[in-house]
């Protein structure tokens, strides 16, 4: 892992330029620019959607990869962020600078409140208890008949930014999503490199030792849940704006599952892996869907192939083949 190996001295500028956050943002920005130049409105839609899904996946990757907290309920904070847009909109609040922090706070609050209970458990039990809490909030959302109940509801209008309708076009929204993704990648990366990040990873590896040192992994994990959940809430705010429609379907456990797929597909070791996973899943969905009604078969084959190949010792396989 990059953090544990003393890096050879490199010019700070080069290091910054190679930072996953920068590379990611540049990649998305390039895609957006080319789409824009090609006159493709849909290109912008796709970039916006991919970037916001990547943001949700990155927030989950932070929990899974760094804190060792496998949440199977990450759709809940995502959906809460989306519902914040809907509910705030019904009360006439549509400014992004208000809605974004609100979405972060509401989702973080949910994650902390449920996390306080969930963190009593470990491993698979933690996976399932997070699912339970997400299902509960799903049913709560489905019973909010003032906000469309199970059907959901269209948001009043897309959020404004600085009071201006900068997000009306998908290009504007895509730029915001990409910028927020970059910020999140950069911020989380700093956090991981900090003392706090070290502590999180240490807690994952050896809890007893940490406790013997008088450190409290519980508090660290709770903070991690707040950050991860909050960022998913931000992604939810963006999602509601991209779709202009909010429904409980966003909180369904399938969505939690898809986010886990993105994170694990890209590799849990690095945050950038989650971005890769999100891009891969969106692209597969986008391209395979055009060829066949049975595109899920293709997706399944790709997933199984990736998992099996990643596990196989490729060098041994090659040797075996040559012999």
């Amino acid at each position: 892992m990059a953090q544990s190996v003393p890096t050879p001295r490199r010019a700070a500028g080069v290091r910054l330029a190679l930072h996953p956050a920068v590379v990611g943002v540049l990649g998305f920005a390039a895609a957006l620019a080319i789409a824009h130049a090609g006159g493709s409105v849909y290109g912008a839609t796709l970039v916006a959607r991919t970037a916001l899904l990547a943001l949700a996946a990155v927030s989950l990757s932070f929990l899974i990869g760094q804190a060792g907290l496998v949440s199977f309920g990450h759709a809940a904070p995502l959906g809460i962020g989306a519902y914040v847009v809907l509910i705030a909109g019904e009360y006439g609040v549509t400014e992004m600078l208000v809605v974004l922090p609100l979405g972060f706070a509401a989702a973080a609050l949910f994650s902390v409140a449920t996390g306080a209970v969930a963190l009593r458990t470990r491993g698979v039990y933690f996976i399932m208890i997070t699912l339970a809490f997400a299902q509960m909030i799903y049913y709560v959302a489905a019973s909010l008949s003032a906000f469309g109940g199970d059907d959901g509801m269209a948001i009043a209008a897309r959020s404004t930014l600085f009071g201006l309708r900068l997000l009306k076009s998908d290009t504007g929204l895509a730029m915001l999503a990409v910028a927020l993704l970059g910020l999140a990648l950069f911020g989380l990366d700093r956090l991981i490199a900090s003392r706090y990040g070290l502590m999180l990873r240490a807690g994952r590896a050896n809890e007893a030792k940490l406790q013997a040192l008088g450190l409290d992994p519980y508090r660290h994990r709770l903070i991690a849940l707040a950050i991860g959940g909050g960022l998913a809430g931000v992604a939810g705010v963006l999602l509601a704006n991209q779709v202009e429609y909010v429904s409980p379907a966003t909180m369904n456990w399938h969505v939690s599952g898809e986010l886990i797929v993105m994170v694990v597909l890209g590799g849990t070791g690095r945050l950038a892996g989650a971005v890769l996973g999100a891009v891969a899943v969106t692209l597969l969905d986008e391209t395979l869907g055009h060829f066949t009604e049975h595109w899920k078969l293709g997706l399944g084959l790709v997933i199984v192939a990736v998992v099996l190949l990643r596990g196989a010792d490729l060098k041994a396989l090659l040797r075996g083949g040559a012999a």
Binding site: L18, V23, L26, G27, F28, I34, L46, V279
Partner: peptide
Amino acid sequence: PAMPSVPNRILLAAAVALLPGAT
């Protein structure tokens, strides 16, 4: 130092791969 690390290159390639769909 001049080469981006492998995941970064893939990331870039994947981002660019968004384009065919778009254009």
